[in-house]
């Protein structure tokens, strides 16, 4: 970042799952953004991006929540989301949801243009090439579906992880295959979801990595929940925790305090 330019004002969209289950990820995101020269604010008027309603066929609730998010984040240079799934919802689906609402369609487009998933924002927009962090371990990385296919996040996290001292990446075979979370899918069709996550953790275990990373809390809760149920010692973390170097501040997902 050039010192001449004013610091970008970033609104952090926390996401429900980070807010509720894993605040550590939110603080890691704040640290990464601040280290990269941004000023970060967290509007308290935000709630949920509306994806659960959208994907359940309830367009009205989804559109209401989209309007709420749009209003809460107007005025920021960027909106950054530590999740490809919620990020994709804001970036791609708000436009679709509000296309027929003349008062909101333009605002949805405006928000879309400024919204980024955290790691792609760091790498693609801010041009961050390395982070100041240390993690002694061998990690493997699962590409969460929405981040990968809606937002094109693939190389960015790997590039940044490679700059973490002490860290080795073992690539995950089938990294692009869904882990079986799928929002309400995992509770509506638990047996199919279980079959998918079983296959996923078998692949994870085969890599020999001691740590599993991904960029979406939904997938992480699913995979951590399955690994822990099976008694696996593999540690599970959001990629932002490792990149921010805050892994000392919270135990891995699903592990003891």
């Amino acid at each position: 970042m050039s010192d001449q330019r004013p610091a970008p004002r970033v609104g952090l969209f926390v996401t429900c799952l980070v807010d509720v289950f894993r605040p550590t990820v939110g603080f890691a995101a704040v640290k990464l953004l601040e280290d990269a020269g941004c000023t970060v604010e967290v509007p308290s008027a935000q709630t949920c991006c509306g994806q659960p309603a959208f994907n359940s066929g309830d367009r009205k609730t989804a559109a209401d929540l989209a309007r709420n998010t749009i209003a809460a984040f107007e005025g920021f240079d960027y909106v950054v989301v530590p999740s490809g799934s919620c990020g994709g919802q804001i970036k791609h689906h708000y436009k679709e949801l509000l296309a027929d609402d003349p008062a909101w369609a333009a605002r949805a487009h405006h928000l879309s243009a400024r919204t980024y998933e955290l790691v792609s924002f760091l790498a693609d927009v801010l041009g961050v090439t390395n982070v100041e962090a240390r993690y002694d371990g061998t990690v493997t990385y699962h590409d969460s579906c929405s981040g990968l296919r809606e937002l094109g996040i693939k190389e960015q996290p790997r590039r940044l992880l490679n700059s973490v001292d002490g860290l080795t990446i073992n690539e995950l075979p089938g990294a692009e295959v869904c882990c079986g979370f799928g929002g309400t899918f995992c509770v509506k069709y638990p047996d199919i979801s279980n079959h998918m996550v079983e296959a996923k953790i078998a692949d994870i275990t085969k890599t020999g990595a001691d740590t599993l990373l991904a960029g979406d809390m939904g997938c992480l809760l699913n995979m951590a929940g399955k690994l822990k149920r099976e008694g696996s010692p593999i540690r599970v973390r959001h990629v932002a925790e490792v990149l921010a170097g805050v892994t000392d501040e919270a135990p891995p997902i699903g592990d003891k305090t």
């Binding site: 926390v14 980070v18 509720v20 550590t24 929940g225 149920r229 699903g254």
Partner: peptide, 23 residues
């Protein structure tokens, strides 16, 4: 949450929401 916990554990929340801690 039987649909979830039939096959997997549910990681526990950390104790306070992000919004609460941020405030």
């Amino acid at each position: 949450a039987e649909g979830w916990t039939r096959h997997r554990d549910m990681p526990a929340p950390e104790g306070k929401t992000f919004q609460q801690q941020w405030a």
